[in-house]
Design a protein around this nucleic acid. Structure first.
Length: 603
DNA sequence: GCCAAGCCTG
DNA sequence: CAGGCTTGGC
């Protein structure tokens, strides 16, 4: 069989995919432990807001920061969650790229189990705080603003109106504020009361914040009982509104921007006509023994941006490889949106939350998997015709420099454009993780749910450090044995993964494939099924595209090694391991939840 | 020598 | 998946 025969009929969908956000966009973990820890963010610049003199250095804001910081400290429930990063100043804003990358990296340790005081646990959630503080501050100012209106309305009403018709005075404001933010920006209230930095420990931060309104000294104690009752109602409404706002923020941060949020953006990218996606010409593949995968992540990102833009700027001049509609899942049939961030964030979040919660067989989690659809019979037949069906030959029409197409600009731009709100509210998320968990048992051992979670995490990280594992399994009481066991799990995962890669690479060689770049792991390929069956047996998780890209790269590396006879060297796999170990991705924040994914899988 | 990772085996 | 062993880096 001519392995290239199917090129025309099934151009690679993977080629058209924008880079997975986690590829080249995440932390750039060194292969091993000691190096990884250096990437942990508590020593890094939290965000651009710190470098924005317009607000960070503003005196008022400074004062507010101090105040809200106290609040957050109370929220986090951590014995010491807000240890200031003493190396913040180290990282200046001189290099935006660097700052951005660190911003991403800093997500990792932030969720270190605060219940476990220790070297890691003492590093605070401060990094994500500035923006969160800002939001909290806005909420509070909103409250104060409302309060002003209450007072203004209540006092005249005492003389001009009876207590029977008080709505006139404050109703509209109340509605406005509940629906969002009033026409008058809360920011005008710069006269924020500096609280005495009192003791705000414990979970009651929000109630206490609201109660600040309740006990304002200027509250007219002489109000008629009717008015007071109305004030009481308003108070409750405010409490509800604030709680709602906080909930939405927490929801926001519980949804990983790089994992699932960006996957929606990728989906849109699937609409790019594949004829527009150029690939390298045959024969150029071997000129680059260490393609993108061997580059440092930073370099990958930059290369991805440049090449991605280049490729997209080219005219659709490859009619030889028409788009195969079959390759575009139904869920991709949205508007050709390249910038998911253009969608109002709350809309996205709601949709994503819906996805996360939708675990049914018709849920979006599984809906994108072509192999589950009836139309897959075609793919299956196709795979059957290619015994090495793990892969699909990829057409090559461009120069080899276009190779790193999987790492296109879109995801990188997304990363840089991700709302800082999301990136910097992780302190709140830490609180969210802790709050429900503080009363939950920390398990001494590992259970099947942990194993399942670890397997899903493997889609993002092949070489997790023990620190990372601790961060992502907050409900596990780690000790030497547990850590070893979990490390061993990933070792076993890798073993299976590499065995499959070698197997299918050899199969491709024996089938006559000559160009490694023809080997692309797609969702309907045999190799993908094998991997998905192993790591995602229930098929209740949508395998991230970044994993497919890593798998494709791994396959290609094995192909190159075997086809060039390097497998005669007893340690011929090591260079491949080294490459792959640099390609770990950021794990979605949702994985840090102690109840994820066990909670979902219980259903 | 220690330790992490990989390999082999059951 | 886990235990035992080997290997290689430090």
């Amino acid at each position: 069989m001519d392995p290239n025969s199917s090129v025309l009929s099934s151009p690679s969908r993977a080629c058209s995919r924008p880079a997975e956000s986690c590829v080249g966009g995440g932390r750039s973990p060194p292969p091993r432990e000691q190096g990884r820890d250096s990437f942990f963010p508590w020593s890094q610049v939290p965000s651009s807001s710190l470098t924005d003199p317009d607000w960070f250095w503003d005196e008022h804001v400074q004062a507010k920061r101090a105040r809200v910081e106290t609040i957050i400290r109370g929220m986090c429930l951590s014995p010491n969650p807000l240890v200031p990063g003493n190396t913040r100043a180290r990282d200046g804003p001189c290099c935006p790229e660097k700052t951005r990358e660190r911003k991403r990296k800093q997500s990792l340790p932030m969720q270190q189990n605060p219940l476990k005081p220790g070297p890691a646990g003492n590093h605070g959630s401060r990094k994500g705080a500035p923006h969160m503080k800002e939001q909290l501050q806005l909420l509070k100012q909103q409250l104060r603003h409302l309060q002003e209106h209450i007072l203004q309305a209540a006092e005249p009403r005492d003389t001009a109106q009876g207590p029977g018709s008080p709505e006139k005075g404050w109703g509209p404001h109340n509605v406005k504020q509940r629906n969002g933010y009033g026409s008058r920006p809360w920011a005008v209230d710069s006269d924020h009361h500096q609280r005495s930095g009192g003791d705000l420990s414990g979970v009651e931060k929000y109630p206490r914040e609201v109660s600040e309104v309740e006990y304002q000294p200027e509250e007219p104690m002489f109000l008629p009982s009717g008015t007071r009752a109305l004030l009481e109602i308003l108070r409750k409404e405010l409490i509800g509104a604030v709680s709602q706002a906080v909930d939405s923020i927490l929801q926001k941060v519980l949804l990983d921007p790089q994992g699932h949020l960006t996957q929606r953006g990728r989906s849109f990218q699937g609409l790019v006509p594949e004829s527009r996606i150029e690939t390298s010409p045959e024969g150029s593949a071997y000129k680059d023994p260490l393609p993108l995968a061997a580059l440092p992540r930073r370099a990958q990102a930059q290369a991805g941006v440049l090449l991605g833009n280049l490729s997209l700027a080219k005219p659709p001049d490859s009619p030889r490889y028409p788009t195969s509609p079959r390759m575009i899942p139904k869920s991709y049939q949205g508007p050709p949106e390249n910038c998911p961030l253009a969608v109002p964030s709350h809309v996205q979040e709601n949709q994503i939350l819906g996805q996360l919660l939708d675990q049914g067989p018709c849920g979006l989690w599984s809906g994108n998997l072509p192999q589950d659809s009836p139309s897959q019979s075609h793919s299956s037949a196709e795979s059957a015709l290619r015994p090495w069906g793990a892969v699909k030959p990829r057409p090559s029409v461009l120069s080899q420099e276009q190779h790193p197409l999987p790492f296109t600009s879109t995801c990188l731009e997304r990363l840089s454009l991700l709302p800082s709100v999301k990136m910097e509210h992780r302190g709140l998320q830490a609180a969210a993780d802790v709050l429900p968990f503080s009363s939950v048992h920390i398990q001494e051992g590992l259970n099947p749910s942990h194993l399942k979670k670890a397997k899903l995490m493997f889609f993002f990280t092949r070489y997790p450090s023990s620190s990372l594992l601790k961060a992502y399994f907050p409900d596990v009481q780690f000790n030497r044995c547990i850590t070893s066991q979990m490390i061993k799990w990933f070792s076993n995962f890798r073993e299976f993964y590499y065995i499959q890669m070698e197997k299918f690479a050899r199969q491709a060689i024996s089938d006559g494939v000559t160009n490694p770049k023809m080997l692309v792991v797609l969702r309907d390929s045999e190799l993908f099924r094998a991997l998905n069956m192993h790591y995602n047996k229930g098929n209740d998780f949508e395998v991230p595209d970044c994993f497919l890209e890593i798998a494709s790269l791994t396959l290609q590396e094995f192909f190159r090694a075997v086809s060039t006879g390097k497998d005669s060297d007893p340690s011929w796999k090591k260079p491949i391991y080294k490459i792959i170990s640099k390609l770990d991705s950021d794990i979605p924040e949702i994985f840090k939840s102690s109840s994820y994914p066990q909670e979902l899988f219980r259903n």
